[in-house]
Design a protein around this nucleic acid. Structure first.
Lengths: 213, 213
DNA sequence: TTGCCTAGATAACGATCGTTCTCTATTCTA
DNA sequence: TAGAATAGAGAACGATCGTTATCTAGGCAA
């Protein structure tokens, strides 16, 4: 990969070719186990068994368990963002793009093994014990709020709408997780419709009760 | 040790007079420690130190650590209910009684050591590992929703309002905890005002935009 | 006062955690 | 083919957990 040593690649220790694949195996197994049972409840031995990666190699790929936790959080962040944006991109109508967030939630809530927001669960588990994890969780939520603010702005809504929609989404997730029900997604969507319509008519001067009722 | 020994109650072991006070000491210390750092992060030794109750006595008052956890959850439930109802009872106007929930949240968010909803944190920590704890958390949330439904009904709102208000409260709590900010209480309250007014005007036939704007 | 029973302080126990070390077999270069 | 270095499997290590047992001192009935 650099000069002449890649002609035959004699013995490069630092990066073996399948290290990346092994890391993915570990992160995939860790993601499932951590989401299902939490960080502390899953030991390194179980992570070794589930991923098929020997313990020694595991500690060569990651410096510690906490490092795995952090990378799993980043992977979750990517998955969440991809899922939400995919749903949002399915339409070009600004109002529906905002509501698409709750459609994504509805699908998520009914998916196998749904157990609430992994970031909220992580925050609750580590509390303030790990500053790194808390920071990642905080950053994830801020990122989501920024995304919502952008969607709301594109819809022509005032800046006060986005935090309200974010709170609705957040509340729907935890309520659905604890109640083990998908209904909160519909409730949150219905509430979001009202908030969006009021916000839009307030700033655009539409008629009363634009769509529903 | 069976028949005539209870004639004068010579040595009653089961219940000493100060057992109740000791239990309160333990539950108070456990409540603070558990809320601040989670269940698993707080050991029995720390609980002994903080409460001043010797370990042996601690295990005579409670059969296990999990039993303490459960009783702490019940104590939290009582504290939460007392705080919310006190704020609600401060007014008799149905609409303001609904909004009082978010006023309570605003005060809570700015209180020292606020770290989110203890029930949500507990749910995230134990996941589904402890069915007892999960059940208590579920029951607490259901109790809150029922209370909100009663307040909404007294305000003359349709049944669809209460779940929306509950989701707003839930989302405000977690958002405030993660962002370490009290603003979500104001955002949730503003959203609740809109939802309430729309719900009331929809069912009572008032004019457009009743109070604000 | 004497003897018994219990309280409290603390050590010990078994289990489990994250992490490291040992030992053997294999692989790959020269 | 000879040799060196690494990979893998698993034991071992130190720490900590929840829980229990031990030991000593003190309170109370007779």
């Amino acid at each position: 990969m650099s000069t002449a040593e890649s002609a035959r690649a004699p013995r490069r220790i630092a990066e073996r070719p399948d290290d990346a694949a092994s890391r993915e195996l570990v992160l995939a197994a860790a993601g499932q186990l951590f989401y299902a049972r939490g960080f502390t409840a899953v030991g390194m031995d179980e992570l070794r068994t589930q991923s098929g990666i020997p313990l020694k190699r595991l500690y060569r790929l990651f410096p510690s368990k906490e490092a795995i936790v952090e990378e799993v959080l980043f992977a979750w962040q990517r998955m969440w963002t991809a899922g939400v944006t995919a749903q949002v991109e399915s339409t070009l109508v600004p109002r529906e793009r905002l509501l698409a967030v709750y459609d994504f939630l509805a699908g998520w809530f009914t998916s196998e093994g749904f157990r609430g927001c992994a970031f909220i669960n992580s925050f609750g588990e580590v509390g303030g014990a790990s500053g790194n994890i808390t920071d990642i969780v905080r950053q994830h939520k801020k990122h989501f709020q920024t995304y919502l603010a952008q969607l709301a702005d594109e819809a022509g809504a005032p800046a006060s709408l986005a935090p309200q929609l974010a709170i609705l989404a957040e509340g729907a997730i935890t309520t659905a997780a604890i109640a083990a029900s998908a209904e909160p997604a519909r409730h949150a969507r219905a509430a979001a419709e009202i908030l969006i319509d009021v916000a839009l008519q307030g700033s655009a001067g539409g008629n009363c009760h634009p769509s529903h009722a």
